[in-house]
Each structure stands twice: as structure tokens, then as C-alpha cells.
Design a protein around this nucleic acid. Structure first.
Lengths: 344, 344
DNA sequence: TACCATCCGGCAATCGTTTGCGTAAAGTAC
DNA sequence: GTACTTTACGCAAACGATTGCCGGATGGTA
């Protein structure tokens, strides 16, 4: 009989029933080789029968290991807080699955940029490591990243890997993808390719996509007209405005590479309103392969990022840091999804 | 000077510096009234200066309260595990925000129906309460819900509230929404309204939406033809197939109410392939207001659920259970979003 | 028989809080 | 000045695991 009649069973209860000491129960259940097969099986049987579960808090407190990762979304301080960037939502599924496969719990939180989350997760032993996702202006949280590195926090970030990056970073091959898009459009006979997206260092991913496009054009002996590059961050409204700006400049173009699907969707509307037919007059390519991309008319050619492996790479990388192992390669391949918007 | 030179500070370190006992530090920091203003402020200042954070594991272990909620997604065992039901993803934002506002951490997990998650979260003190989301066949996890109730677990479920439900449930006013859709279509002169969606008790939400439609038709003196009702669960492919089935039956109809946007999007494709023009020949209404709904052609008339309040209600309800307070009202209003697909 | 390595498992300390109980000092009430 | 409540805080015992250290069996070798 346990000491407390009806409460949750503890390892003491099991120990009593098994006729061993309580530490032996702990060792048996976590598979220590210092306990014989016979007693382990006996203990396991009793544990199963009592419906015993290890108390997470006691375990984490003593072992200083929570087996938990924290997933932090950073949002640009946009007024529209109703919906989340769908791209990262699709990453979420992948991350949770790999956490589950590794026996990790996942804490999730949406952060304003000015919260002091670093403290909250880093020092309270809530999580062993952090996964940082943010689609916004890189420079805004650069300082925080430095602080994390200084304090020895285990973390990994989704972003552009090729720049002089702070901390571990996983990301798609944005440059390669940009080149892929460029080659695709060139192969379809397009020559005057516009680019909608921030082409400066605040958004290094967009910058890389653009650089890939430029490279493809260079290889074909073309130069990109700077007038055909319009800054935009990832939002439908801003994509719409950017396309308007592009049109207003009056320079002819026969293709648009939008740095994200949201931008592309906004641009699609602006082009339509200007009487241009996609893809006949203008070919259009996006980036991300949002669910919505296949439902626009015409359906959007876009770049698919490898979500499945993205989540895996992120989890593996932070785990590798925690356990002081070498980290997996940080660059993930992409795939061009050709649909009607880039011409037939 | 603390006892350990460079490690994370503990409440002992603060106590030493403040010249008080360690329990007093704990009391001061959690705002107990048993500590004077002066000493509290002194302690708070030192804590801030030392960059102290309460150790979550120690705190939870002793207080038996983790201040954490677990969000569990249930998935039908579909082979396509790449993407998550977008409707619930949009709920996620709302839930995390309200958890943050209440100072709660949020654990997230995707569950296969056959996992014994109940045990994992219920007994390991990982979380104080559970939020259950699942769009699938209700009967599949009915037994689990009973078990949760028996074991006294705090949980709340998103679903159909009006049935003889097990445990606390929050949900939209599906019946009212169905009636709204019916009235809208009738007002546009449609008379033969088809329904795509499971109309049996396995999917009580769909059933309620259908019941609302039937009520609206009854009020207008109409009866719904059973041949115009086709079973479907929420997926684009199945919506496509359901619409094909409907067409194959040969009965004329001038409107389709799809029980979800995914179904509607599939149906839209099937109708188009059959040479029917939406909305001229057939009006189409969906449910959920997915992001994609505004990008179909024609854009989809649909029902918007109140995500912001949904998250709030879920969190509040499980919190109320934990703290033994009365729970907030469980039914949330909906709003019809009229777009082109239901006719001009 | 003596010696040493190996295998199992117990003892007790520890992780860093929270909380019940006790009590000196200080404040009322008469 | 006695008696009785507050106020403010200390003491020590939890909470339930993990882990370093140690020692009794066991068995193999010389």
C-alpha cells in the first residue's frame, strides 16, 4: 500500500511495491544499466499498473534538463494582429512533429520585439533551447541575438544563412532559388524582369533571392534595370502598392518576381487593375507556396521551401548545441512549383 | 557575495544580499502581503540587478501549479501530414495571445488519436489544463473524453456545444450560422439548396450547420431534398468528389452550402468542370473564411468564426475550471462574409 | 584461500522553490 | 500596565525526482 491512499503515485510507491529503494525505481525507468533486467521489468510492470508518470518538474529540477524547446515567433509590430504569417504556421507542424519524435515538449509564444523573452526562457529553466522565427527586419533584433550568444543560450534561428550571421541559423537556399526563378523566366522568353521585395540588408533573405535573380540574368548576358526593383515587405497590401509603384515608373517589363507569395498576390491585383493579363503580358512568380497560391487566378508559380526538413533541421541544430555535437548543414534546397502565372 | 560565484542567482543569493531569509524573498517577489513595502522594494531592486528569474521547475514542483496550458491538436489519421488545418492554425494565434496575457505558458502538440496523451499531460504536472482541438470524427475520441472527465483533468474542447457534450466545450453558433446562410441564399432567390458535409452525428458541427439551413428553408416554407445532401469531411479532394456525386444524381439545384471552405473550394472546381458558372448557375457558400477563400474565383462567400474570442473563451474556460470559478458562456456568434460566389 | 573486478542497488544529498507554523515586535483597547 | 490582536518575518519541512558515492554479493583468476 502506498503512503497516500488515492493520490498520484510517486516513485516511492513503486519502490515499496517492488521491494526496492526509490532511486532504483528512477534508474530502472530511465534505463540505467545499473539495474538488473529482472528488477527493471518488475518495476516497469508495477509502474504501468499504477499508471505512474514521472513528475516533470521534479525531474527537470534535479537534472537541470527540461527536455523542452521554446518556439518564439517574432512579429513586426503590425497593427493587424489577427493573422499569423502562414508560412511560419506551416513550419510549426514540422517542428512539433520532430519534437515529438525526439521526445521533446514544445513551448510556443508570440513575441513583441521589445519583450525580454530572452530572460524568461533562458534563465527560468523553462526550456533547454530556443527556436526563433521572424520574418521581419533583421536589424531590429540583431542586438538581442548578440546578447543570447553572450549568455550562452542555446538557440537557432530561421533566416538567411549566408550572411555574417549571429548564432546558429537555418534557412533555405534563397540565392539558388532566386537563380532558379530567373532561369525559369528567361527560359520562357522573358527579358525585362522586375523584382518586388526589400533588396537591402534589413531583409537578407529577400536580398539573396534578388541576388540569385541578378546572377541568372548576368549569366544570360542581361543586366537588371534598377528601376524595375521596388522595395516591399511581405504583405498583400504592400505588394499591391509596390506593383502600383512599378507601373507608375513607366518602364516596360514582361515578368515580375515577387519575393513572397503575399507580395505576389497583391501585385496580381494591381496588374489586373492596370489591364495587364497574367501571364500573357506579364509573367508572375512568388515565393513560399502558400496554400492560397494555388487558388489565385491564374494559379501562382512559386518557390516551395522544404518545410519537412526545415523543422527537422531546426530541432536537430538546437539539440546538437545542447548536447555539444556538430550541427547539421544549415542550407536547405528549394523547389520551383510551376503554375500558370509564369506563362505556358 | 553569493555562494556560487558565476552561476544563475537563486533566491538565497538575493536573501543574503538583502539581509533577509530566503522565504521572505519568495514571498516578496510573488507579492505576498506578509512582507512590508520597504523590504519588498529592496528585494525587487536586488532581484532586478542580479537579473534573477524564478526557477520554473522548482516553483512548479513545490506549488503543484505549472501555470502552463497544453494545446493538443487531434488529427484524423490522414496520410497527408504535411499541412495542418488552416482554421485551427488561425485559432492558435488567438490562444497564444490570451495565454500570454494571463501569464500562462503554452505547450503545443499534435496528437495521433491513439496516443495516450491524457496520461502524459494529466499526470506529469506538465500542464494545469488541456485545450483540445480536433476537426475530426467526434465519436473517435469520445471515450477519451470520458476518461478525462473521470480522472478530474481540467480541459476544454472546441466543438459543437449544443449536443449532449462531454466536458466543457466552446464553439461557434453553428446552427445560427447555418440559418444565416440559408436566409442569405433564399434572399438571393435560390430555392434548391444543396448541402455538402457530414450530416450525421459523427460531425456534430456540420450537422448543426445543416440543421440551421433546414430551419431557414422550413421558415420559408421549403423542404430540403435529401438527394441534395452529400456527405463530406473537410478536405478539398473530398469536396470535389462530393460535388461530383451531387452532380451525378441529376437533381437540379441552384445553390450549394459547403460545410467548410475546403469542401467549397473542391466543389468549386467540380462545378467548373461540369460547365456550371458560379454564381450565375449555382451560388456557393463555404464556412471558416480561410485566407484562401478571398482568392478563389469568384471569391467565396463564407462564414467567419470569431477567432479572437474563441481563443479567449477557451483559455478562460479551462482557467475557470482550474480555479473553480463559473465558466464563461460557451457559444460564440458568427458573421456571414458575403463575396461574389453567392450571387450579386 | 586470497584477491580483484564486476554487477546491483542502497544511502543521503541535492535541485530551488513554496508554505504551515511559530514568534518577537509593534500596535490597539481597556 | 495587562491582554490581545496585527504585522513582518524566520525556521524547517515539504515537493518528487536524479546522482555521486559506497558497499555487499558474486564470480573468476592466481
Amino acid at each position: 500500500m502506498g503512503r497516500r491512499p488515492s493520490n498520484k503515485p510517486t516513485s516511492f510507491d513503486i519502490a515499496y511495491l517492488a521491494g526496492v529503494s526509490q532511486p532504483t525505481v528512477s534508474r530502472a525507468l530511465r534505463g540505467s544499466k545499473a539495474v538488473s533486467l529482472a528488477t527493471r521489468q518488475k518495476i516497469e510492470a508495477i509502474a504501468r499498473q499504477l499508471n505512474y508518470t514521472v513528475d516533470k518538474n521534479a525531474s527537470s529540477l534535479r537534472s537541470q534538463r527540461s527536455n523542452t524547446l521554446a518556439l518564439l515567433f517574432f512579429e513586426d509590430p503590425t497593427p493587424d494582429e489577427s493573422n499569423i504569417n502562414p508560412f511560419f504556421l506551416s513550419m510549426l507542424g514540422s517542428i512539433t512533429r520532430h519534437c515529438a519524435a525526439k521526445g521533446l515538449d514544445l513551448l510556443i509564444s508570440f513575441q513583441k520585439l521589445d519583450d525580454d523573452w530572452h530572460k524568461k526562457y533562458q534563465e527560468s529553466h523553462r526550456a533547454d533551447g530556443l527556436i526563433l522565427l521572424g520574418y521581419g527586419d533583421y536589424t531590429l533584433y540583431e542586438a538581442r541575438l548578440r546578447q543570447l550568444v553572450r549568455s550562452g543560450t542555446h538557440f537557432v534561428r530561421w533566416g538567411s544563412v549566408d550572411r555574417d550571421t549571429i548564432g546558429a541559423t537555418i534557412g533555405s537556399d534563397n540565392f539558388g532559388a532566386g537563380r532558379l526563378v530567373g532561369e525559369h523566366l528567361l527560359a520562357r522568353g522573358r527579358r525585362a524582369i522586375a523584382f518586388l521585395g526589400q533588396a537591402d540588408s534589413h531583409y537578407p533573405e529577400f536580398q539573396q533571392r534578388h541576388a540569385g535573380l541578378v546572377r541568372a540574368m548576368q549569366t544570360a548576358g542581361l543586366k537588371q534595370d534598377p528601376d524595375l526593383v521596388v522595395d516591399a515587405i511581405s504583405s498583400e497590401e504592400i505588394g499591391y502598392a509596390a506593383a502600383k509603384t512599378l507601373l507608375a515608373r513607366g518602364k516596360p517589363f514582361d515578368a515580375v518576381f515577387a519575393a513572397s507569395d503575399l507580395i505576389a498576390i497583391g501585385a496580381l491585383r494591381a496588374l489586373g487593375e492596370a489591364g495587364l493579363v497574367v501571364p500573357r503580358d506579364v509573367a508572375l512568380v512568388g515565393f513560399d507556396d502558400l496554400p492560397a497560391a494555388s487558388h489565385t487566378s491564374p494559379p501562382l508559380t512559386t518557390v516551395m521551401q522544404d518545410m519537412r526538413h526545415a523543422g527537422e533541421a531546426l530541432v536537430e541544430t538546437v539539440l546538437a548545441q545542447i548536447e555539444d555535437r556538430p550541427t547539421p548543414p544549415p542550407v536547405l534546397p528549394t523547389r520551383l512549383v510551376v503554375r500558370a502565372s509564369s506563362g505556358g
